[in-house]
């Protein structure tokens, strides 16, 4: 790949969890602009994906704050530095170029040309749960999909959607008009989804435009690549054969280390080793902060990640500007910092 269409950046942060978000702020104070990549479609990482409503009690200065509020506040705090977010993108590859800069690529074909990489990938990237059926890998990308990126690809298909959450219902409703046939498979009558979508879905069932089956996936039938049908186990224990050539399973997300494992970094049990002065990995210019890193005494707490972000930013500045002096300043009293924050 040539780097011509790559976005030129000072720093690319991988992961928009709480620690990645605070890194935007810390780097921003030092005039380092950031691009931020996350596979999810929203910021907040574990805080918003796993426990948005739960209170956190150990964020300094906040006796109690919910995962969602913390994420919202961090976004607000980072806003003066105009970070550029690339949601829905999984960072896949990292290549060091001869000039010491890095060329990064996401699964959706976004390229970055950067000097500094900040891995704030937490527990790994959130990826769709894949049903545990032997041989499902062979069907993936041909007739099994975990996301809909281009609706047109599904035109005139015989689609089976499995699951009972919002994603399952949204896609059942969205794809119904263009599909040749659409079926929904869910393990029970009740849905944990938006009431409005449930109503619309039931209306389609009544008019015969959508087949609803109560049951669970049992086996995939086909040639190993293309599906001809899916067998489900009905609630009464009897098999249901569902005619389909496309399966979309929606069973939520799970955290997987993902591509980071292949970047040649010093890893141990899925964690990236760093030093505790710069929070740099075994590769100069690649830093790792938050839940993803490991060092003696590491605590997997948001508060530790914030501290790591501050020290990492100092080291990143020195790397980008080896000849400039870094003056230590307080946000309370430095007019320079306040100008950057837009409060002066």
């Amino acid at each position: 790949m040539t780097s011509e269409k790559a976005i030129k950046a000072d720093a690319v942060i991988i992961g928009a969890g709480p620690v990645g978000l605070f890194a935007i702020f810390q780097l921003g104070l030092l005039d380092i602009k950031c691009h931020v990549v996350d596979i999810l479609d929203k910021p907040g990482g574990q805080c918003t994906e796993l426990y948005p409503e739960k209170p956190i009690y150990d964020i300094p200065g906040f006796p109690e704050i919910s995962g969602q509020e913390l994420s919202d506040n961090l976004m607000q705090q980072a806003a003066p530095f105009s970070p550029v977010f690339h949601f829905g993108n999984m960072l896949e590859s990292v290549d060091r170029r001869a000039d010491g800069r890095f060329l990064l690529q996401t699964d959706r074909g976004v390229f970055f040309d950067t000097r500094v990489i900040v891995i704030a990938a937490g527990g790994g990237s959130f990826q769709p749960k894949r049903p545990p059926y032997r041989g499902i890998e062979g069907y993936e990308g041909h007739s099994v999909f975990y996301a809909v990126r281009q609706m047109e690809k599904f035109r005139d298909k015989k689609i089976l959607i499995a699951g009972g959450g919002d994603s399952a219902l949204d896609w059942a409703l969205n794809l119904q008009p263009i599909a040749k046939k659409i079926s929904l498979l869910h393990r029970r009558e009740e849905f944990r989804a938006n009431m409005d979508s449930v109503g619309k879905m039931r209306a389609l069932v009544e008019t015969g435009k959508l087949d609803f089956h109560i049951g669970q996936l049992k086996s995939l039938n086909g040639d190993g690549k293309y599906l001809s049908s899916v067998t489900a186990l009905g609630r009464d224990g009897a098999d249901i054969e569902i005619d389909c050539d496309t399966l979309l399973p929606f069973f939520g997300l799970t955290m997987k280390l993902g591509p980071i494992a292949g970047w040649g970094l010093n890893l141990n049990q899925n964690l990236v080793y760093v030093d505790t002065e710069k929070f740099q990995t075994s590769e100069a210019g690649i830093f790792a902060i938050g839940d993803i890193n490991s060092y003696p005494g590491k605590l997997k707490l948001i508060l530790s990640g914030f501290h790591e972000a501050a020290l990492m930013a100092q080291a990143a500045f020195r790397l980008l500007h080896p000849d400039e002096r870094l003056v230590f300043q307080y946000t309370t009293s430095s007019s320079k910092l306040q100008k950057k924050l837009g409060v002066l």
């Binding site: 749960k129 049903p131 545990p132 699951g163 009972g164 959450g165 869910h186 393990r187 029970r188 009740e190 944990r192 669970q216 996936l217 069973f251 939520g252």
Partner: peptide, 11 residues
């Protein structure tokens, strides 16, 4: 919990 079980397999 019943809602969350929708996200498990082989329930």
């Amino acid at each position: 919990e019943e809602d969350m079980l929708d996200f498990a397999f082989g329930v």
